[in-house]
Design a protein around this nucleic acid. Sequence first.
DNA 1: GTTTTATCTGAACGTATGTTCAGTTACCGT
DNA 2: ACGGTAACTGAACATACGTTCAGATAAAAC
Lengths: 195, 195
Amino acid sequence: MARTQGSHSDITGPRIREAALRLFARQGYAAVSMRQIAAEVGVQAGALYNYIPDKQSLLFGLMKGHLDELLAARAAVVPADNAVDRLEEFTRFHIRFHHDRPDAVFIAYMELRNLTPENFARIESLRRQYENELEDILRQGVTEGVFDVPDTKVATMALIAMLTGVNTWFREGGRLSLPEVETIYWTMVRKSVAR
Amino acid sequence: MARTQGSHSDITGPRIREAALRLFARQGYAAVSMRQIAAEVGVQAGALYNYIPDKQSLLFGLMKGHLDELLAARAAVVPADNAVDRLEEFTRFHIRFHHDRPDAVFIAYMELRNLTPENFARIESLRRQYENELEDILRQGVTEGVFDVPDTKVATMALIAMLTGVNTWFREGGRLSLPEVETIYWTMVRKSVAR
DNA sequence: GTTTTATCTGAACGTATGTTCAGTTACCGT
DNA sequence: ACGGTAACTGAACATACGTTCAGATAAAAC
């Protein structure tokens, strides 16, 4: 089962996930066939079932993997001591992280309805963990007296939607670079919660 | 063909669109079959083709109808003379209009990839018209000297994403009423563009 | 060099898809 | 009452789907 040397299949599993990620993002989970994914990998459809139990698990694995990565990347950040700096860091982190994974982000938001109820609950729980990081920052700022936020829960949802929205319009090579976009969004975020 | 009195079919067309709207929003365009839609209407699948040429046109018609309604509702608004009042009106309008049509909003954002290139271009053009209304307001405020916005195009996308995001979390009967949510968002919008 | 094991093919399974259409039904105007 | 017509059924079309599996293939283990 597990091999000590790098043989073919050690690379086939990830290749299936990459192909599925790209195709699901472009055409949607329901519109992509197992045969399409297999063709992208250069294999017959039946061979996929040596790596995944079924199509559903493939989708769930992609979503779970994305959110695990997101939370791991957050956990690696050493938080600043004041709320303003923490919020700036979060803003720039969110934009950059989501910019680097447009397909996974798209899938994680759009294909929730194709999950079984249990899998849906697991994904939503991970997402809530991430959102709670932002809400903690906002609450800290309110406590510190540097933020004036009418409702930290609503503000959290508002800011996350705003930041994630960058993915819908930003294109490499356009009028603005990503760092410039980060700065513009940070300006708006900062002012929206300022005293 | 056209009948003067209200006969059965005058009501069947809208009923097909309503059923398709609901099902597309819940399961996605690709995952909904014509037989499912027909069953919802209480008819056999073949009968649908007395009202629509094909499944694609049904999707496009729903999206186009939604955006036409949106632009018509905007056109009916008498704009205030100052940018701040116009922006508040836009904010509350956007939240309320989108809140009243969650299914149509969901479809109009998520099923763009299932449109042919020409149809996609037509829908995007309508959406851009709506976005331009907001950008005009922001530019007016900058000219008046009451707004301080680093980039009106980026601010437009940021604010629209933020406002549309209400649909992803707001549920009737929750902690907050819709007017309360409107006010919270207006506070954040106002501050984010303030001088 | 032979056995063992992981991997893949190619065909098959039952079921579902969008769309068409000849034929039936039900209602309309007269 | 009756002819005309709009609306609908039910079956059929070709094609595609996710998944399974016996058998072929290739690589690793001894």
